[in-house]
Design a protein around this nucleic acid. Structure first.
Lengths: 104, 104
DNA sequence: ATCATTGTTTGTATTTTTACGAACAGTTGC
DNA sequence: GCAACTGTTCGTAAAAATACAAACAATGAT
């Protein structure tokens, strides 16, 4: 795994590093489509903050949004989602080392 | 996956969310033991900053350190490492949804 | 056209993260 | 003891992340 891939690992992990965003992703992963309002209802935060988190998830590509009438429909971007899964798995598969330190 | 596990997902992801920490983990994952000085040599940062990152990785349990003479030996904590791997994989396995949004 | 509904964007305050130098602490060798 | 080496901790500055209210924009209904 080269340096560029490792940077992607950090970027994907960064998207998942916030409990709110984990909740959003979990929510989206368990329905195949939903509106902003549904996501917002699930969270104890104001709409601006929710929108901000969604924007960040969109930025790394893990989700995508589509304007539908007056509402916005969000869902997981399967392609990026799988890329993240594969990258993180590859990264975390990288250690078959037996630890030589004490304090177990 | 319950809320507590999802919080752990966020916590592990948070440890991996920084490029420097990814480099440290990658470095450690590819040797089975090494000293603070070796890690520091690999990074363009002052020792205080490196120490800080190591402290954070130790806090979530992904690595462990052991004082050995005047040096400190660090290595991956295999148990936590595997827990992180399993949790993240489970989380990212959670979406078999076909996206219903456009803009592909 | 006007109004209510749905989200986004902007401005801002607070907190957290990241990085550094300096001070400190422990170990080894003289 | 004292000096050299290895890391950690402390204090602090700068940047980024998080959250909110208010303003804004777009659509749909009346």
């Amino acid at each position: 795994m080269d340096i560029e891939e490792r940077k992607k690992v950090a970027a994907f992990a960064n998207a998942i590093s916030n409990p709110v965003r984990v909740e959003i992703l979990y929510f989206l992963a368990n329905r195949n489509q939903c509106y902003f309002g549904d996501i917002k209802k699930d969270l104890p935060l104001c709409k601006a903050t929710v929108s901000q988190h969604l924007k960040e998830l969109k930025k790394v590509g893990l989700i995508q949004g589509e304007i539908e009438g007056p509402k916005t429909k969000y869902c997981i971007n399967a392609e990026k989602w799988n890329e993240a899964r594969q990258l993180l798995d590859e990264f975390l598969s990288g250690s078959n080392n037996i630890c030589k330190c004490g304090s177990h």
